[in-house]
Design a protein around this nucleic acid. Structure first.
Length: 851
RNA sequence: GCCCGGGUGGUGAAACUGGUAGACACAGGGGACUUAAAAUCCCCAGGCGCAAGCCGUGGCGGUUCGAGUCCGCCCCCGGGCACCA
């Protein structure tokens, strides 16, 4: 073997070995227990960033570990290849998105290969390939026929200058990112997936996912948002016609305290009021300005305007004024709420602002009155007061009584309301899956027949930022109706890229299948046993995937699989600082690698400039993203230290679920460790082999192994890496580096290291003659005999504070210890003349004397 | 604003079910080797204190023989909020 560790040649050798043996090729095998390990596929943005390296190393460590445990492992890789950045790049460089995307894929594939991930590359897929998106279209047509895909209007961000729909990301402080124009809301027809039809099942099934983090399940539960309440009708007359304004409330017990109604700007009642009252029209127009981004809407000042209309209270018969409120969402319930200012914080603020009456109807912990300022107690459940026949009822009784009375009047009944909205999938963009619908003047919306799929996306277009180029391309959209044969127009919208990522994991099982979306091989591999990806996907991607799996199940594909992911590991984000220049009024993001920062003693940034002296603005720390240009490219790291160091370091730096502020400062240490492993192996290989045993060292090594095995199972890889270091420390301290203990320790070390730094482990395993393939070696087991000890060192506390320790024979029981401890000098000293009340003993560990 | 996380030395972190706070490293200081440097090796190291000892896991309070770990309130940071992926 070489005298020094040369990662380049070690890694080349190992990768050639794996390639020549197709080591990572997975095949369905009936007898062996399968394990499908999957990391979220990357968007081919150009280069890998540290988030990818972390994500894929986590997956790789797991699969290599499970291989050693004897599982039939599948770990595939592919590309989430449709999306907005390709269009942005196209605009900037005048290169078609297809070309840009395929180039990026080629480069990133090379990077992934150089990291030595145990991936089955024979199953690679790219979602922008017609072979793949054909099945998006195929499933869409099934869903369309079943009514699971349907058309209605949706609200989008509209850039009035570029005459184009903007993604939320392209709206910066209420303005279009390219034009700077104030963004408007616009209603357009779109297709939706009826995910709401599965709301109940998606919610319930969360309870049967023990392998998912509680955190994620809670987020999904809240997102689906099941609430039980009452739908209440408030009758009114408009232009001589009797109508009813419907609201949903979870607080029907407060109905008698309703003093106003608030409707969304898009509500029909608001629109009809606008026709009569120019002030209402002006207010609604005002509401329609700005973005559709809910995070921003939630923070704007709550404003309203009376419509001049009033409705009748269904119980009391009182007249109640109807307002338009900018805080009422058309997308939740029926776009109207009843205002009960005495018992709802938002309604209170609204009523206080506009001088509307506040009528307390619930006895709260502070009494019967509601005086300013608002107190959270006002919203608590309590007994009804000032509510006529409902006085004295508690929450549940009041809801029952009121909903019963409303039902008799046909003005209400109990209802379940969901927060989850149907999934809008239409995008007015080019680089995505064409929606397979033909618009026929006679037949309406007609799905494209199976034998005409896929509707292929032309790959040579270059978008210019003024809308979807497909809509300007007659050769794409001019077609004939599949039903009547008359001239018709193809849909030019494409699908949300979340559609692509909602089922790709099943396609990996059978990427070559031309005749079907998936085949029986998917039933073998699915569900994914371990899914790994960023916590940022906790809701949308994971929920959509759970929905799609059920749609596919109900379509007869993989009939036994409802949940796509049995176990979920949510990787913490890799964060980096971001900087921009603001010279032209448009933000130009500067990569942190190109920024020189000056800090004060506390680490606060004093000034930041680019390497050529331009002042930049610090934008805080956040997730590595293409849009903020703050991704740290791992390539320099790999070039300098090799893949094993990059892998080892990312695992060592923190546990997988932690967010990680990237710093490559301490990479050196990981490299130094791998070099030391090499150096020790070299020393061992040159030394004389002896049968000598070192009991103390063996105990250390096996104790460390025991902990490392446990940590491996609970996926805490940073301490597995530490364990490798500890074992090497023990080995280096051995008096005889050729001893049997050294041989045993090395064989344990290399196997622990094999999942994390596989190239080095592979090479040394062969060089030292342990075998021909470390991946085929069994995972090491700690030897119970090596862990045996005759004496135990007890920590001794007095009143919970550590004062010393005492060695006692392993066999010493409680009464023996109780006898020894009070006579210890340091115990006597700290007890003084106090009386010992009790002695707490934690077996094998600790003794606490309480005085 | 709403929902979900996180906060431990100068830094990344460890401490599994409440039981020795800071394992393992990085950066740092000191030393050895070297003509010198790199590399390597050895030693030191939470803060205050000569020491005994005291303080210390974002802050305040609580439960407990004992709290980084459990409970309550607050502060700060990150993720998500439906068209970034």
């Amino acid at each position: 073997m070489e005298d020094t560790y040369d990662p380049r040649s070690v890694e080349r050798k190992a990768q050639a070995f794996w390639e020549s043996r197709r080591s990572f090729h997975a095949e369905e095998a009936a007898g062996k227990k399968k394990f499908y390990c999957l990391s979220m596929f990357p968007y081919p943005s150009g280069k890998l960033h540290m988030g990818h390296v972390r994500n894929y190393t986590i997956g790789d460590v797991l699969t290599r570990y499970l291989r050693m445990r004897g599982f039939n492992v599948l770990q595939p890789m592919g590309w989430d290849a449709f999306g907005l950045p390709a269009e942005n790049a196209a605009m900037a460089n005048k290169v078609p998105p297809a070309r840009w995307t395929y180039d990026n894929i080629a480069y990133m594939r090379k990077q992934l290969k150089s990291l030595g991930f145990a991936l089955d590359w024979e199953r690679e897929i790219a979602t922008c390939s017609p072979d793949y998106y054909k099945w998006n279209q195929w499933l869409f047509t099934r869903m369309f026929r079943k009514g699971l895909a349907y058309k209605k209007t949706g609200i989008v961000n509209w850039d009035p200058v570029d005459q184009t729909v903007l993604a939320n990301e392209q709206v910066i402080e209420g303005r279009g990112w390219r034009t700077g124009a104030l963004v408007e809301k616009r209603e357009i027809p779109m297709y939706f997936f009826r995910i709401s039809a599965y709301a109940e099942e998606l919610l319930k099934a969360l309870d049967e996912l023990p392998g998912w983090p509680e955190q994620v399940k809670t987020m999904q539960k809240n997102w689906i948002g099941k609430s039980e309440g009452v739908r209440i009708g408030f009758p009114y007359e408009l232009d001589g016609k009797k109508q009813v304004l419907w609201v949903f409330t979870t607080r029907a017990d407060t109905l008698m305290g309703a003093t106003f109604m608030a409707v969304a700007a898009e509500h029909p009642i608001a629109e009809s009021a606008a026709k009569r009252d120019s002030r209402v029209k002006a207010f609604i127009d005002e509401c329609k300005k700005g973005t559709v981004i809910e995070a921003e809407l939630a923070q704007i000042e709550k404003k309203g305007m009376p419509t001049g209309l009033s409705v009748t209270h269904p119980i009391s018969g009182e007249r109640i004024p109807v307002w338009v409120g900018n805080y009422v969402l058309m997308t939740y319930g029926e776009g109207a709420v009843m205002g009960v200012p005495a018992h709802d914080e938002r309604d209170y603020a609204f009523a206080a602002k506009y001088g509307l009456p506040i009528k307390p109807v619930i006895r709260h912990p502070l009494g019967d009155k509601v005086d300013p300022p608002w107190r959270p107690e006002y919203a608590e459940y309590g007994t009804c007061i000032n509510s006529g026949k409902y006085d004295g009822l508690d929450f549940q009784e009041a809801v029952e009584a009121i909903s019963k009375d409303l039902k008799e009047k046909h003005l209400g009944e109990k209802q379940i309301q969901w927060r989850l909205r149907d999934w809008g999938v239409s995008r007015q963009r080019y680089w995505g899956t064409p929606i397979p619908i033909v618009h026929c003047p006679a037949c309406g919306d007609v799905p494209v027949p199976d034998d005409e799929l896929p509707v292929k996306l032309p790959e040579d277009l270059v978008p210019d930022g003024t809308g979807n180029p497909l809509a300007k391309m007659p050769s794409f959209y001019e077609t004939k109706c599949p039903e009547c044969g008359r001239a018709a127009k193809r849909e030019t919208d494409t699908m949300d890229t979340f559609v692509d990522s909602s089922w790709y994991f099943s396609r990996y099982a059978c990427p070559d299948q031309q005749a079907a979306m998936v085949d029986e091989r998917a039933s073998y591999w699915m569900p994914v046993d371990q899914y790994i990806g960023g916590i940022e996907h906790a809701i949308l991607h994971l929920l959509y995937s759970r929905f799609f799996q059920r749609v596919m199940r109900d379509e007869g594909l993989m009939p036994k699989v409802a949940e796509p992911f049995t176990n979920l590991l949510t990787q913490g984000m890799v964060l980096a600082e971001s900087y921009y220049t603001d010279a032209s009024g448009r933000r130009e993001w500067v990569n942190p690698a190109d920024v020189v920062v000056e800090r004060d003693a506390k680490g606060k940034i004093l000034s930041a400039r680019t390497k050529n002296g331009k002042e930049v603005v610090y934008d805080g720390i956040g997730t590595m993203s293409k849009s903020k240009n703050n991704g740290v490219d791992p390539q320099a790291l790999i070039d300098k230290y090799g893949a094993d160091t990059a892998r080892f370091y990312t695992m060592f730096a923190s546990p997988p679920t932690n967010t990680l502020e990237w710093s490559d400062e301490s990479v050196e240490g990981s490299y130094r460790f791998l070099r030391r492993v090499w150096a020790f192996a070299l020393q061992f290989s040159k030394g004389h082999k002896t049968a000598g045993q070192d009991t103390a060292a063996r105990r250390e090594i096996h104790a460390t192994l025991k902990q490392a095995s446990y940590d491996m199972q609970r996926q805490q890889f940073n301490t597995v890496a530490s364990a490798c270091m500890k074992i090497l420390n023990s080995l280096e301290k051995l008096e005889d580096p050729g001893s049997a203990t050294a041989a045993e320790g090395l064989s344990i070390l290399l196997r622990l290291l094999a999942p994390i730094a596989p190239h080095l482990a592979h090479d040394l395993w062969i060089e030292l003659g342990f075998g021909e393939d470390v991946m085929k070696a069994p995972w090491p087991e700690p030897d119970a005999a090596a862990l045996e000890q005759d004496e135990i060192e007890y920590v001794v506390q007095v009143n919970g504070v550590k004062r010393g320790s005492v060695r006692a024979p392993k066999a010493a029981d409680r009464s023996a210890l109780e006898l020894i401890v009070p006579s210890l000098d340091f115990v006597k000293k700290h007890i003084g003349d106090k009386i010992i009340k009790r002695i707490v003993i934690v077996p094998g560990k600790l003794i606490n004397v309480v005085a």
